[in-house]
């Protein structure tokens, strides 16, 4: 087996095999993560709300979300009469691309990384902006007013929050002088960056919640206002792709936060990949906690918060960081 692998590597080159294997791994992680997260979300919601949550399907209801995804596969794919067909079909697949690409550059361990690109964080940020595009397409093509309002909200929200997101990460980049995620992770062997950059961490986390459209910033799909927001008209598998993307985005935001601020895979005793997942899921848990505790903010409050508070604060933080490093 190993010999075969070695010969294969010699024939097609080490990098290609690594990339292919990595992509397969990424697929497994993405799907597995979505299933685990839906289950986790329902369980966490249940316990926050003084009830048990799923428990009948499988032990502790673990198989529940798996059963649900099988059900979604079997549902009819409805296409409403007056949708913009090409765009309507495109949107769900388009939302999945940036999600997969982001996984490529995240280091799960010193070794476990599909490809270490020296502008890794730029790749993630550039591709994550594509999510907005597909939400806009979904909302526009659905020919539904609720969807349209939802997608328009989503666009202005993401534009507003991308800036503080970027600025807060920049202050870490200032310290490491590298855009590669691996280098940043390695730089935290001693003290985590969250202790150097607490403000940047907070700004990043808040902006990250907004980027993933989670409560209290879940305006694009505000249930009590817009029914289901931009995916109101999507059913079956197409809907579940949006769903999958949402949960994977949550994971990615938490993973970036871990990589940049919480020492990535660094930790004692346990192997790095375990540490990475523990830290990431701890952050994901906080995201879930937010959702089931907070009400939703209003649209103008949301934008004001970004433009009037987060962006100035992160600029100031960047200035101070630059000043201290210069001295």
């Amino acid at each position: 087996m190993l010999n075969d692998l070695n010969t294969l590597m010699q024939i097609v080159g080490k990098e290609v095999v690594r990339t292919v294997l990595g992509l397969i791994g990424v697929f497994i992680v993405v799907l597995g993560n979505a299933i685990v997260l839906t289950w986790l979300e329902r369980k966490v919601a249940g316990h926050i709300q003084r009830r048990i949550g799923p428990k009948e399907v499988g032990p502790y209801g673990i198989i529940q979300s798996f059963a649900d995804s099988v059900k979604l596969l079997g549902k009819e794919l409805l296409t409403p009469a007056n949708v913009d067909r090409p765009l309507y079909f495109l949107a769900p697949s388009l939302i999945f691309v940036p999600v997969l690409v982001s996984f490529v550059v995240i280091p799960f361990d010193g070794f476990l990384q599909v490809k270490d690109i020296n502008v890794g964080i730029l790749v993630i940020l550039a591709f994550s902006s594509l999510t907005v595009l597909s939400i806009l397409i979904a909302g526009w093509s659905s020919a539904n007013k609720y969807s349209l309002i939802g997608s328009v909200r989503s666009v202005s929200q993401n534009i507003a929050y991308e800036i503080p997101l970027l600025l807060s990460l920049l202050s870490v980049v200032f310290m490491t002088n590298s855009l590669s995620l691996r280098d940043i992770a390695e730089a935290q062997k001693g003290l985590w960056f969250v202790f150097y950059q607490p403000v940047a961490f907070l700004v990043f986390f808040v902006a990250g919640v907004a980027e993933t459209n989670r409560t209290p910033f879940d305006l694009p799909e505000a249930e009590s206002e817009l029914v289901a927001g931009f995916h109101t008209e999507y059913s079956g598998m197409r809907f579940s792709l949006f769903f999958l993307a949402e949960y994977t985005n949550m994971f990615i935001v938490s993973a970036i936060a871990v990589t940049f601020f919480l020492g990535s895979y660094q930790g004692p005793v346990l192997p790095g990949v375990v540490w990475f997942f523990i830290k990431t899921y701890a952050l994901v848990f906080i995201l879930l906690w937010f959702r089931w505790t907070f009400p939703r903010v209003r649209f103008d409050q949301l934008l004001n918060f970004s433009w009037k508070i987060l962006i100035p604060v992160s600029f100031l933080n960047l200035l101070v960081t630059g000043g201290i490093l210069k001295l």
């Binding site: 329902r42 249940g46 048990i52 949550g53 799923p54 399907v57 209801g61 529940q64 649900d68």
Partner: peptide
């Protein structure tokens, strides 16, 4: 708690 049956 209808959620026990995954129907919440």
């Amino acid at each position: 708690d209808i959620a026990r049956f995954g129907a919440e």
